[in-house]
Write a protein that binds this DNA or RNA. Sequence first.
DNA 1: TAAAAATATATCGCAAACGATATAAATTTC
DNA 2: GAAATTTATATCGTTTGCGATATATTTTTA
Lengths: 150, 150
Amino acid sequence: MAYPQLKLDNQLCFRLYTAARLVTSSYTPFFKKLGITYPQYLVLMILWEQDNRLVGDITEKLKLETNTVTPLLQRMEKMGLIVRQKSLADTRQRIISLTKKGKHLEEEIKDVPNCLARDIVGKNMKIEEMQTLIPLLDNFIHALSPDKEE
Amino acid sequence: MAYPQLKLDNQLCFRLYTAARLVTSSYTPFFKKLGITYPQYLVLMILWEQDNRLVGDITEKLKLETNTVTPLLQRMEKMGLIVRQKSLADTRQRIISLTKKGKHLEEEIKDVPNCLARDIVGKNMKIEEMQTLIPLLDNFIHALSPDKEE
DNA sequence: TAAAAATATATCGCAAACGATATAAATTTC
DNA sequence: GAAATTTATATCGTTTGCGATATATTTTTA
């Protein structure tokens, strides 16, 4: 124990890593019935909010690169959740649109977030604690985001 | 926007997912020189704290399953960071031990966590905010951890 | 307007995560 | 003490995440 900063228990990073894995996997039982994954759900949420987006819109919202998002979208197209059409104005672009199937999932999923939140509140975690977490994480994310507009 | 709970911006989960990715990737430039990855670093930290551990100790500390940890350890063995010896007392078990190379990395990495923390504090994030995050995340993780001892 | 630079997206390869299942050895039960 | 159960770890297949690089267009520049 020469270096306390090298202990898991002293590290914020390990907690984030673990919390993210656990909360994501708490969604899994709900998604399993619907045949989707957590990142696919993220894409769906973006499109439910506004349909017919460019790949670049989605990468920006998710703070992911195209090398992650393109294959994700390709799988989602193969599953029949979205279509990826070339833009006529600029053929480099792809317009991502929900299919009927993709739209329909919104209704099936809409209660899941609140359901999970209630579940967590039923254990150790208070609602106020969750609400405290949000702005702290936003600051943290902002501090770590690559500088774009300064 | 019929369902506000289905917006990325209203979700704690997406923030955790993003924060975890960003903080992990902020380690990458340091690890790259040393040829390791973030999960490998986690294993090394566990072993620096106490060497000669069982696979099960490591899965428990990391809250990961053997199907993630075993291949991780196999890669680390191939890289010469650890050795995986069968236990004589119980041949089902594997004892994971640091090699000289694995031990040596501790010195090379010891300043990285504080260096990154300083970096983050240099931006939007205050030290007190980071210290507030820790117990909140611990509660959250505890609430989401599969019940073992109740 | 042809060449150079920038932009949007895609491909490749590898390391993680994880569900499902397998194997092998130890422990318990009958 | 043989069979059943449990325990410890491993293997397989799929999706993600990401660095590096490629491709195809569009825009800028000379």
